[in-house]
């Protein structure tokens, strides 16, 4: 399926005048959900930037019906909401829109439970790599070396690999996406929408405030993360893994952009730009990440080109 953006109508995919910061990747992502899935959607949003982005009642700046819920409970509240719709014979997409903390830290238990139960929901982690809403504190998804207000000399641990953990749950659909590549994200949403069961999309969302870059560069930074090999784009459908077409070439290290190009745009990495050892650690991380991708590709194949057929059929 190919998205033709020219055919998408002019309409409010998000409501202007919301409380998002200028250059916010979350409102970009939310627009793509509406472009991909239309109006037959209810969002479940745990505490985070998107709780605030909605703005002040009785108005909401996100153009979807929303059930706001406490931090740790997004996946479980969504499970119940979906069950209610099923009980009433309504076919509605229940979509969780949770940050990296709400997904990988405080909300992880509920996420893991819902994934294991194969709840018929789409869970999107909008990953801005720290607790931005409370003022840029590190999360388990903050990458190595990044400055946050709780890691002043740079985080000492690497990013937790949530999509990989979700593949290990054996769910129906796992994908990674970046707000730098909207059509890829939209296509993935549309494929996910055609599958029943638990679907997980990990959306990289560079935050100008927390990552310390010019708000005009949100899309560019999101693209660079992919182009440097730091954030591979892939899909996993029913046991078949494949790299996304637009990002396939970055499997070859020679085709990747030097990671320094990504780092130097962001103030959160300022302190390690002239420390080659630190940069090297990030480069090693990229290498290891691609070893894992390689292993996933080799493990989750379908014989006789069946895998590609699965993707084309959706």
């Amino acid at each position: 399926m190919v998205v033709n953006i020219r055919k998408l109508p002019d309409r409010y995919y998000i409501m202007p005048g919301n409380a998002a910061c200028p250059g916010c990747p979350e409102t970009m992502g939310l627009r793509y959900i509406k472009m991909a899935l239309g109006d037959n959607v209810v969002l479940v949003i745990p505490a985070g930037c998107s709780s605030v982005i909605q703005g002040i009642a009785p108005r909401s700046g996100i153009n979807f019906p929303i059930l706001n819920i406490v931090f740790a409970a997004a996946a479980s509240a969504a499970s119940g909401l979906k069950a209610a719709f099923e009980a009433q014979g309504k076919d509605v997409h229940v979509v969780v829109w949770a940050g990296d903390g709400g997904t990988g830290d405080i909300g992880f238990q509920a996420l893991s439970g819902a994934a294991e139960r194969d709840e018929d929901i789409i869970y999107i982690c909008v990953d801005n790599e720290a607790y931005m809403n409370t003022g840029i504190q590190r999360s388990s998804l903050t990458p190595y070396g990044a400055w946050t207000t709780t890691t002043w000399t740079g985080k000492k641990e690497h990013k937790k690999n949530i999509p990989y953990i979700l593949i290990s749950h054996g769910v129906k659909y796992v994908a990674t996406a970046s707000v730098g590549y909207p059509t890829d994200f939209i296509e993935k949403l549309q494929r996910a929408a055609k599958i029943r069961g638990f679907r997980y999309i990990h959306l990289l969302a560079p935050c100008p405030i927390g990552w310390r870059f010019d708000p005009g560069l949100t899309a560019k930074v999101a693209q660079l993360a992919v182009q440097t090999g730091l954030f591979p784009l892939y899909e996993y459908i029913n046991g078949v893994f494949r790299l996304s077409p637009i990002a396939k070439k970055y499997k070859d290290p020679k085709k990747r952009k030097p990671v320094i190009e990504y780092l130097k745009l962001q103030g959160r990495y300022k302190h390690l730009l002239n420390k080659p050892d630190e940069v090297k650690k990030i480069e090693e991380y990229i290498e290891n990440l691609w070893h894992l991708i390689d292993a996933l590709e080799k493990t989750f194949t379908a014989e006789g080109g069946k895998g590609e057929a699965i993707y084309r059929s959706l």
Binding site: V42, V44, L67, I69, V70, A73, S76, A77, A78, S79, G80, L81, K82, A83, A84, F85, A87, Q88, A110
Partner: peptide
């Protein structure tokens, strides 16, 4: 949270 979600959805 799950039954609250369900109740919010009309069940």
């Amino acid at each position: 949270a799950a039954v609250f979600g369900a109740a919010s959805g009309g069940a």
